[in-house]
Design a protein around this nucleic acid. Sequence first.
DNA 1: TGCGCCTTTTGCAACGATGCAATAGCTGAG
DNA 2: CTCAGCTATTGCATCGTTGCAAAAGGCGCA
Lengths: 342, 342
Amino acid sequence: MAGSTLRDVARRAGVSIRTVSNVVNGSVPVSEELRTRVQAALDELDYRPNLVARNLRRGRSGMIALVVPELDVPYFAELAREVITAARAHGYVVMLDQTDGDGERERELLGRESRATMFDGLLLSPLTISAEELRSRTNRVPVVLLGEHIFNGSFHHVAIDNVAAAREATEHLLGLGRRRVAAIGDQPYSTGETAQLRTIGYRQALERAGHAVDEELIVPTQRFHRHLGAQAMEHLLALPEPPDAVFCYNDLLAIGAMRAAARAGVRVPDDIAVVGVDGIQEGQYSSPSLTTVAPDKAEIARTAVGTLLGVIDGSAPPPTETKAPHRLLVRESTVGVGGAGP
Amino acid sequence: MAGSTLRDVARRAGVSIRTVSNVVNGSVPVSEELRTRVQAALDELDYRPNLVARNLRRGRSGMIALVVPELDVPYFAELAREVITAARAHGYVVMLDQTDGDGERERELLGRESRATMFDGLLLSPLTISAEELRSRTNRVPVVLLGEHIFNGSFHHVAIDNVAAAREATEHLLGLGRRRVAAIGDQPYSTGETAQLRTIGYRQALERAGHAVDEELIVPTQRFHRHLGAQAMEHLLALPEPPDAVFCYNDLLAIGAMRAAARAGVRVPDDIAVVGVDGIQEGQYSSPSLTTVAPDKAEIARTAVGTLLGVIDGSAPPPTETKAPHRLLVRESTVGVGGAGP
DNA sequence: TGCGCCTTTTGCAACGATGCAATAGCTGAG
DNA sequence: CTCAGCTATTGCATCGTTGCAAAAGGCGCA
């Protein structure tokens, strides 16, 4: 009862292997008589094509891999969902792997013994790996980068305009009349530049509004997790002159920050307004609900998958830099219960 | 510069294909001289084994698939993380797919043209598909079920003890002196029985404590999402005699319920205590933080992967029913800020 | 010197499918 | 009645790798 092959079916139907293959694929015309006979044999033996063999012969696997730092970070989970959906629309399936933001694992993924050759292409959301490294290791596999920008123009890349997103978030806070706006999530020493771009946007907003940047209010965090947001917030609240608003570089930091505020008896948004980035579902149901800059994840996924498939079939232009749309979702964490949106 | 093969390397090194293969695999001894010569050729050509070909020959892919209803449901994302980790420990990688709880998609996954044959095994968290269907469609691929129990003993299955989990959650509420304990999330008409088991546990707790079950307080929901939890809570709060505690069948429902309570000006836990199931990270940082019955996801993943690999290599016993451990994490949503744990 | 034994290296077939080109079978025109 | 021209069917080679078993080479021992 182990998987039957074309040969088994052919033998049973009394035809050649090739004819069975033709029936299965439907590309070549087959006479009505043989078709039914073969079909019967297919059914009786419950034939399932061996996709590994098919892939070998066709030189395509129909699989792409999506590599993210952590799957249990809601942003990546929600993005993964969209990527799977987008890939399915093109008949592709998605392998998921996570690197835990560990450079070793990222490298391993591209190394000699990696499984990368099993996939037609790679969607990569790198955290620590650098540009040259990436290039030297991926001369075979088509790659599209998500989120993190890597400087030299050797890769296709899809992300939101991080500077603009951060600027808009900060301007929103300033527009509400907040005067001491802090920032949580800078990563001045990281290879990834997302955080740095957001810091630039934050500074731009302050400067354009004619405010001085108080370096004390820019709190770096190693990574973008809830507990680090909480720590950072505790630090800010302990300042002699605490902020009245915080721009967090992602929603998890913001949620951690709100939690710390609640614990300290500081009211959001009355005492301190909070805004995040990512537009994760969690922020809709937090108390208060979270104002956030939401990237259009479905659009990011569609663009990334589309570009990757273009690279795979050779129809893609040279590496492009695609900016995906984002928008500010205003909720209770900045405007209170009165003015909240969805 | 398209991928070089064993043949290319062999030609360049002036040896047979087989010898190159031996060097690459290291299983058969190769003389020092040839080894270095071959190694040089490997490096110069940047040889990467074609895993599709290797898999075809070896009859194994080293991949398992994990199929969940929705990847952006935190429980599944967190579980997926653990599964990926557990699989990696055995040298396996994980393909992820989601069915959106759509029976069609679940069936498609197992159907004739499915990619299931590409994987050595399947971890399946089914929502709607029934037992016979599953059995009739998976006579080839090794399968282990996660979460949902399917009655007849034809599949390996890993889950927590849902009755006990629900009972403990409810008992916790009763132990706090709550008298009108509601339940959100029953699914009396669903094929999956998780919800039904939790209802049984809920009833058990009430009955053992000598309370009558008020059917009005059992609110069914189509699925386990935040907004449905919120709806259910609104319904409960509108009752002539609203409950003073709610057992929600998962954390998302609970978070939605807490949100609805907050919006209605009802305090948690003072006016109404809330407990969920799943132990997702989100519940640690909600305000108030969420009391929950947390399954040991890492253990579930390890057991499931271990069992599946056992089925794959034929060393597994007949289908087993494995109960994974769970524990009650008491937090603010039931005991307030004073007695909260992590 | 010759034989057997051990080690290294190799050739061939196979995994299961599909591309290509040739064959078999048929029709209709001349 | 023959032959071109078409369609349905087939055989063979191939994708890149590995299992198997035989060949080649080296060595010690009788």
